[in-house]
């Protein structure tokens, strides 16, 4: 039986509204439900003076939550990249030090890391720095103390805020996770890519920078974004050392006024919206990357 040739004269259907609608119902129903519940909660808050009070108490913490997330993620990415290269290094010392760091920080619960950094390591570190005049003065001037203070005092533990300590803990803990993401990305690139670059006369670092890293980072962008969402959620742990982010403010508000349902409703509402926005970003990123590497 012969197959008739396709009818090229028929108008091409560019946009099928029914197909789109069916697709939305099948694949985006969860999102529609989410939006509906979201709107419902917004309406609840706006119509209840107690909930408005709760909202007004908690929402200023959003900026600190986001600040901790962004700063920690930035440094975690840097630490992760450096550690990833250290982990694929042939140098025995570099390899073992970096592997020790990764295994240690992946093996400790985040809560424990935060407590240790807040109550033990930062005070100890500052005591050491205070002994070294030059370092002490440098840090003090970086923190914006005036000349007289710099000259006459040494750095004290309380000069370093909890927020800073927490960001250090998050950056190091997530740096360990991120290094594994980057390492996987780098070793997933075919060895022939480096060989091609090197046979053109590039150095190892040039081949890494121009050939391997662009491909590796592209491959791990979704995993990076996923870590970003996880970090955003984990910032709630900062509440245990009284950093005034949204979880801490919620605890404070709820226990003072005994309004746990209201506090937790607002808190969940904020977290869910922040992470859903991020997830949408991840979906978008994945779709875009997929479109780039498609053969047609």
């Amino acid at each position: 039986m012969r197959v008739p040739p396709p009818d090229t004269t028929a108008p091409r259907q560019y946009f099928d509204i029914r197909k789109l609608a069916r697709n939305i119902v099948r694949r985006q129903l969860w999102f529609i439900a989410f939006l509906a519940i979201d709107l419902f909660i917004v309406a609840l808050i706006l119509n209840d003076p107690i909930l408005i009070d709760t909202w007004n108490f908690i929402w200023p913490g959003i900026s600190i939550t986001i600040q901790i997330t962004l700063v920690s993620f930035f440094f975690a990415t840097l630490i992760g990249l450096v550690t990833a290269f250290a982990r694929i290094s042939k140098n025995i010392l570099i390899y073992n030090i970096s592997t020790f760091y990764v295994e240690l920080f992946r093996g400790l619960p985040l809560l424990v890391i935060i407590l240790v950094f807040n109550f033990v390591l930062t005070p100890a570190l500052i005591d050491i720095i205070a002994q070294i005049r030059l370092l002490d003065d440098l840090l003090q001037s970086l923190m914006g103390f005036n000349a007289e203070v710099i000259a006459n005092t040494t750095l004290r533990s309380r000069d370093v805020q909890e927020t800073t300590r927490i960001m250090l803990a998050f950056a190091l803990a997530y740096g360990a996770f991120m290094s594994e993401v980057f390492r996987a990305g780098i070793i997933s690139i075919n060895k022939g890519q480096i060989e091609a670059g090197r046979s053109l006369g590039m150095t190892y670092s040039q081949a890494m920078r121009y050939i391997v890293l662009p491909q590796a980072i592209r491959n791990v962008l979704p995993a990076m974004a996923n870590n970003f969402v996880l970090l955003l959620k984990d910032t709630s742990l900062a509440s245990v050392v009284a950093v005034p982010e949204i979880s801490q403010l919620t605890r404070q508000y709820s226990s003072n006024r005994f309004r746990y349902p209201q506090g937790l409703l607002v808190l969940s509402f904020i977290y869910a919206n922040l992470t859903i926005i991020m997830s949408m970003g991840v979906y978008w990123l994945e779709a875009r990357l997929h479109a780039d590497t498609k053969e047609d």
Partner: peptide, 8 residues
């Protein structure tokens, strides 16, 4: 190279 190894 056998497998071209172009930069994708």
């Amino acid at each position: 190279f056998q497998h071209f190894n172009l930069f994708p």
